[in-house]
Design a binder for these strands. Structure first.
Lengths: 232, 232
DNA sequence: TTTGTCTTTATGTAGTACATAAATACTAAT
DNA sequence: ATTAGTATTTATGTACTACATAAAGACAAA
């Protein structure tokens, strides 16, 4: 008989550390005082005393906010609020080794959804010069070399994101790519899509967004089919 | 004449704190030792001594990893690697007050891209019961009440994400909604879309994915048009 | 086999001390 | 008078010590 403490419907008691609490208190403080980037905070000692904790604990909590880019501290000047790097914090946890399988799977899907939905933004922002850049990437395509194929894949789709002009989208994609690659390697063999990169560029050039959307869907079809066959 | 130190093309020297360095070292350690969830780490004292820093500094770095859910520590047992909550870390920085305007704008676009690309996943996973739930939400629609309209908007689109069965996507969306709402309020007035929620449900029921995609695009048209007219 | 007690040990928290850099005021020199 | 140099102050950065606390393990008793 198993003696796991989590059995019998008992939920394990959550032992929140003081640091966790202080972090929460700090967040509440920022929100309730409606502080925004540029505003400055009280000194460490003032906050620590106000909260009734040691400066040590406070600093452990502040360290977290510093990592997220929410605050920046300089000697003598004190601490000021800053604009956090939204994707930077994502990047810190998005490592294949660390993320659990379900989440990895979800992210894999997420990436496909992005790819399919990107078309409108793409056509809105694309210019002649971009097409030439895409041509150059397509011309380099060497499907016989498997290790190169991945790089080219990244280059092509990465360029599409770049054309959208959405920096967040672009960075998001480049963060997702390694994970995507990881999932592909572990899950199944590669199936050649019916619509190639060259075909996609051709469709963009024709300027018909609907045809391009269909083309992209066909291009990603092997992945989509794979998803449909997986019972999570 | 301006005397800003950042002028004249000089990049300010980056003063990385010891804590930042230690955080990096820890990440390197995890990666190089190929540690994964479940594995345990050396004790604080051992790590601190190995790195040649005080236990204090080490704990400030560990505190960050703890927040991200990368490690969990228990007394006596020591520290073990855990699966980080990917979106949890995003949530910590995704507050309208903190995020800068450009990023906010990018995220706004990102949300639209997701919405447009979601269709394939949606049709792959939808069941009869879901349609009834959508019907119920649509029936509650009261466009005359502006504060309620937002809630209904969230309920409807949130349900769509839910149907995809992708937990990450669903949570992602629910995190983005407040920001989306924020951007809408600050940027421009609401334009009624030509295709209503009821129309969209009808299109799903017909089972034609292409028509649904077009419908969704029309539904989001006011937003898309707004994007096209903005010179970032 | 179970229960109770003791010891050990790694993390959690507090307090003190000092280094360091930056803002400010003040002084001296051209 | 403006600039350059110096001293002071102060808030953050880092280190060290001490002790509380909880959990694992060992051992003893029922």
């Amino acid at each position: 008989m198993s003696t796991k403490e989590t059995s019998m419907g008992f939920k394990p008691i959550e032992a929140t550390s003081l640091t966790d609490l202080v972090e929460l208190k700090l967040r509440d403080f920022l929100q309730e005082k409606k502080l925004k980037a540029g505003d400055s905070l009280p000194t460490e000692m003032e906050i620590a005393e106000a909260l009734g904790v040691s400066r040590n604990i406070l600093r452990e909590a502040l360290s977290r906010l510093r990592m997220l880019g929410i605050i920046t501290s300089k000697k003598k000047r004190g601490m000021v609020l800053t604009h956090p790097d939204v994707l930077g914090s994502l990047e810190k946890v998005l490592q294949p080794q660390l993320v659990d399988k379900n989440t990895l799977h979800d992210i894999f899907e997420l990436r496909l959804v992005l790819e399919l939905g990107m078309a409108d933004l793409l056509f809105m922002r694309i210019e002649e010069q971009h097409l030439e850049e895409l041509d150059k990437i397509v011309k380099n395509d060497d499907s016989t070399n498997p290790s190169f194929r991945i790089k080219n894949e990244i280059a092509f789709h990465g360029k599409l994101y770049e054309i959208t002009g959405n920096q967040t989208l672009k960075r998001f994609q480049s963060m997702l790519m390694p994970l995507f690659d990881f999932v592909l390697k572990t899950e199944k063999r590669v199936v050649a899509p019916k619509v190639s990169h060259a075909d996609l560029v051709e469709l963009i050039r024709k300027g018909n967004i609907d045809e391009f959307k269909k083309g992209m869907e066909e291009h990603l079809r092997p992945h989509l089919d794979a998803l449909a066959n997986i019972n999570k």
